[in-house]
Write a protein that binds this DNA or RNA. Structure first.
Lengths: 215, 215
DNA sequence: AGGATACGTCTGGGATCCCAGTTGGGCGAG
DNA sequence: CTCGCCCAACTGGGATCCCAGACGTATCCT
């Protein structure tokens, strides 16, 4: 009954450790990361740390300068806008590619999600609202049933997480308007009108200054 | 005037080497890759080879089984279809996000490309046609001016390359019809009608059995 | 005093060594 | 002859060591 597959590799531990440190804002943008320091801090060799940094570089969270060090990468406004455009494309594609039954199931699920969003905003709990909003938007990709697309979306999505935590609760835009837009989006998605969905989403992203907040 | 930045790292060399070997079909799907063999073959240590394999795993070209080895990953029909759907979403988004001047410039460029496609097909030179077709489709993403989106597209695209080389010249669908579809796509893109573009592209992909061929 | 230079110390990249886990083949028992 | 077990030869993961390159600083010359 042993589970040999769960063997958590040190490189993975290093990866999630550094990653969460960056996303949580514990490691500020621009700080130089030393393989040595990270290794000693996590009580392991430099080898897994280097592997983790390489992965993080591919994910776009750090930039490795040869013979210089690794720096926590920030995202400029342009990059955030580009990420938003990609998410819009994928969410739209998800809605467009969804079958009727999947759409119906999505409607149920996200309707509950919206209620939770309203409750969170009503008590001013932004920390609870942000994950709900992210999950809400992700649902439109999930409904398409395209695993590769969902993985691509997630890859883009979590660099967004960085900017969100940077702005720390400072939500741009009227909360009520955001929830209202979410409701409209869900309506368009439920009826399968992906053209309208895409345009509403563009508007929604622009109004909530989506790059930098939860949208 | 020295260019110290061109210092090509051994890990990069290993990466492009293995990558091209896989994409060219030199390394068949399913074969096990040994870090030792690869290292000795390329006259380097296992360290850069391992880094390269890790990158290739993230790119989806190989699968690494712990304590077992790395296997060249194949793509099943479902994955190819999913990739096609993503490419469609991104090409559509590129067209939708393009400005007027960029679209006009694209029209010029791709018109020449289509002529080259016709010439290649006329002399039955599929080896020349495939890169042209890939470049053609990529143009719709380029025109959007979203660097991150283009990078995402490329990541998805080159796993397609694998399937293309697998089918080795066996183009499914009528060549004349393919070029005709390309011409229609360019027309829709030139007028900025991204909705029509998306639907035509879906049809085009389905007709040419896009997953597995050049499309 | 100002600037060019040389050196010490940091960085990451690569090589080598060691270890645990996996596997498949061979040998022995039934 | 067949089945099961055991061992030997692989695998990749991690640790350690060594190396070349990049900076910062101190120093020396002008």
């Amino acid at each position: 009954m042993s589970r040999p597959t769960v063997r958590t590799t040190a490189a993975d531990r290093a990866h999630v450790h550094i990653r969460s440190a960056i996303l949580s804002g514990e490691l500020a943008v621009g700080v130089m990361l030393s393989e040595n320091d990270l290794a000693t801090e996590m009580a392991m060799s430099r080898t897994p740390v280097r592997a983790a940094l390489a992965r993080l570089q591919e994910e776009g969270l750090v930039a490795i300068y040869p013979q210089r060090g690794a720096m926590v990468r920030g995202l400029d406004a342009r990059e955030l806008e580009e990420a938003a455009e990609i998410r819009r494309a994928l969410e739209t594609a998800g809605v467009a590619g969804a079958g009727d039954v999947a759409r119906a199931a999505l409607l149920d699920r996200l309707q509950d999600n919206i209620v939770a969003q309203e409750r969170a905003l009503a008590r001013g709990d932004f920390a609870a609202f942000v994950p709900l909003a992210l999950q809400f938007h992700r649902g439109f990709v999930e409904v398409g049933g395209n695993a590769l697309m969902l993985a691509t979306y997630d890859r883009i999505q979590d660099r967004q997480q960085l900017a969100i935590n940077r702005s720390a609760g400072r939500i741009v835009g009227d909360p009520a308007q955001v929830v209202s837009a979410h409701r409209d989006l869900l309506g368009a998605a439920g009826s399968g009108d992906w053209v309208a969905f895409s345009e509403m989403l563009a508007d929604h992203q622009a109004r909530s200054h989506d790059f930098g907040t939860a949208g």
